[in-house]
Design a protein around this nucleic acid. Structure first.
Lengths: 232, 232
DNA sequence: ACCTGAACACCGTTCAAGT
DNA sequence: ACCTGAACACCGTTCAAGT
């Protein structure tokens, strides 16, 4: 049997969806491909590399054709769209958030690219470099944290505990309100995101004067777009 | 050799700090306690239960004696203090964020308690039930996401990639600014948190009228504090 | 009540040897 | 170039049997 790298990654993702992250095993991937476990090591350095590649695929599904801010567009709409897609990417596959978080910002190539697009879009929308970075860091951290909770398996005994601890009045009240007003996880996510975006908007309004260095960066970036390099 | 539950948990945490999360193995914990692996199963149902307990200990170290909002105190200061402590709890031990995230909001008892304190504190500060929950959800998601990134091992080849991809102008510019202005991870975290708190403040200012149900909840809670139960 | 002994069904990883 | 065979050093979990 002859296999190649992409097959390994895609069957690993198939197993992820079917059996969860702890079911993703090199031996099982090998079995699915009708190959001995050792064979995988010709295509992949180790299990972590496979997991990193899986993370990149999950992100690519949402961001492969994702464009930066268009001149007329509102930055807040664009930023929210970016966050919605990021959440979608993490939710699309079982334990997706854990997979991407496990790969880490460092190892996931797609995330670096997304950072590039985001920060330069916000610079174009009049953000200082600092605030553009803060907007990136704050929103993406939020998305990560939110989805990780969201995807955490409630586990069998969580329900037992919920019953037992009736004294937790807040949890009960919150859940009742959610039912009555039909608030979904989606609604919670979007509202929280809106809170953050409102905070960012406020910061942006307060710092309409940019440091000169930021202006430099903005110019340097736009020249780099059509010219080549320009070493410092 | 005779052991008890707490010893198991504390030596597991010791191993976590020494060898990282993947070093935390029931067999290694057993060896450290001079006991056969099977012996642990009398004190603990399975490995996940041990991990859950570890998560609770990490959180308890910061929140065991954490008080709710004091009447005179500003809610924003209190909320920020809560978030700082949460980050501290996650940072205090190697891969702490992964441990707590792995346990999940459902399984970590301490987190439910913290939710109770937070939401009731914000209600007391004039928040609607909805906004109090949003403030909780948004800030804690942010903290989680931020620390998970923060603790993600950069790995050997991240540096290689950083060198190779010089085209990433934004990453370079951001890192240069951080060095020049001496922005630390702490600074990034606090600024991002401030952005979120500013967003929350704005929402609070806009909804000074509460729904009657919220008022009900607030009253119910305060009576529950000194009286006993009051079933609906 | 609490632990040992011993097994079961798995892992990731390596590497000579085959084709 | 790409895979097999076979091993190594591990895992979590179970359970009769000991004390």
């Amino acid at each position: 049997m002859k296999i190649h790298r992409e097959q390994i990654i895609s069957t690993a993702i198939a197993i992820l969806d079917r059996d969860g992250l702890e079911g993703v095993t090199l031996r099982r991937v090998a079995a699915e491909l009708q190959v001995r476990p050792g064979a995988l090591y010709w295509h992949v350095q180790n299990k972590q590399e496979l997991l990193d590649e899986m993370a990149n695929v999950l992100l690519s599904e949402q961001f492969a054709h994702f464009e930066g801010l268009i001149p007329g567009q509102e930055w807040s709409k664009w930023l929210q769209e970016m966050c919605l897609r990021l959440r979608q990417a993490l939710l699309a596959h079982r334990e997706g958030a854990r997979v991407v978080a496990g790969a880490g910002f460092g190892r996931a190539f797609m995330l670096k690219q997304l950072l590039e697009i985001t920060v330069s879009s916000l610079l174009a929308a009049g953000f200082s470099l600092r605030l553009a970075f803060l907007a990136w860091s704050t929103t993406t951290s939020y998305v990560y944290g939110f989805v990780i909770e969201e995807q955490a398996a409630p586990s069998e005994d969580t329900i037992r505990n919920a019953q037992r601890l009736q004294g937790e009045s807040m949890v009960v009240a919150i859940q009742r309100e959610k039912q009555e007003k039909m608030y979904t996880e989606d609604k919670d996510f979007c509202d929280g995101l809106e809170v953050i975006v409102d905070g960012i908007r406020q910061w942006r309004a307060k710092q309409l004067i940019y440091a000169e260095e930021d202006q430099e960066v903005r110019e340097q970036y736009s020249t780099e777009l059509d010219s080549g390099s320009r070493e410092k």
